[in-house]
Amino acid sequence: MHTDQVAELAGELRVALATSTRRIRSRRGGADLPDPQFNVLAILLREGPLSPGALADAEHVQPPSMTRTVNALVELGLVRKSEHPTDGRQVVVSLTDAGEAEVRETRRRRDAWLAAQLAVLTPDERRTLADAAGLLRRIAAGTAG
């Protein structure tokens, strides 16, 4: 494949992935959270309780922005803040049962939408996508070469 063809494929894949991601992310749980708030819940489910600073680092945002996000999630009852075990000046953010349920429901809805899209494809098309998923994971990890 020539350099121009590789560049053209890169553009086509970028658009297809971005559009697919937007369609998947539009499926939300009952709280209809914006992506930054949902991402915090997902991080807390995966990592466990974290400080607002660690959450800001994980999301590559400034601490004041994360403080606003966390406060909004506290108001919704999806996370709780508690005293840091070793530093009384800090707090730790953790999921509530409602926050965990929101993550699981959002993921269920997103998976269901994507499964419905995959169900109408042929078995060969699904095999092609299964192969592509592995390649995309390698690209995302920077180990495609």
Rank of each mutant, 00 (worst) to 15 (best):
D4Y: 12
D4C: 02
D4V: 07
Q5R: 15
V6T: 05
A7F: 08
A7N: 10
E8C: 03
E8V: 03
L9R: 13
A10T: 10
E12H: 14
E12Y: 03
E12D: 11
L13F: 00
L17S: 03
A18N: 02
T19K: 01
S20W: 00
S20V: 01
T21I: 01
R25N: 13
G29V: 04
G30R: 13
G30T: 11
L33I: 12
P34F: 05
P34T: 08
P34E: 12
D35V: 13
D35M: 13
P36G: 07
F38H: 15
F38Y: 15
F38Q: 15
L41D: 07
A42R: 15
I43V: 14
L45M: 10
L45I: 04
E47F: 11
E47Q: 14
G48F: 10
L50T: 02
L50I: 04
S51Y: 04
A54F: 02
A54T: 09
D57H: 11
A58S: 12
A58K: 08
E59G: 01
V61M: 05
V61L: 08
Q62W: 06
P64W: 09
T67Y: 07
R68N: 06
R68L: 07
N71R: 12
A72F: 00
A72V: 00
V74F: 00
V74M: 03
V74T: 02
V74S: 01
E75A: 05
E75N: 04
G77N: 00
L78Y: 01
V79S: 00
R80W: 01
E83W: 09
P85C: 02
T86R: 12
R89Y: 01
Q90N: 09
V92D: 06
V92I: 07
V93Q: 01
S94H: 07
L95H: 08
T96N: 08
T96C: 09
E100W: 02
E100M: 08
R104W: 01
E105D: 14
E105P: 10
T106L: 05
T106K: 05
R107D: 09
R108I: 00
R108N: 09
R108P: 01
R109G: 05
D111F: 08
A116N: 14
Q117H: 10
Q117S: 06
Q117C: 05
Q117R: 15
L118K: 00
L118G: 01
L118I: 00
A119Q: 13
L121M: 15
P123F: 09
D124C: 07
R126I: 05
R126S: 12
R127E: 13
T128R: 15
T128Q: 15
T128N: 13
A130F: 03
A130P: 03
D131V: 11
G134H: 11
L136Q: 01
R137H: 14
A140L: 13
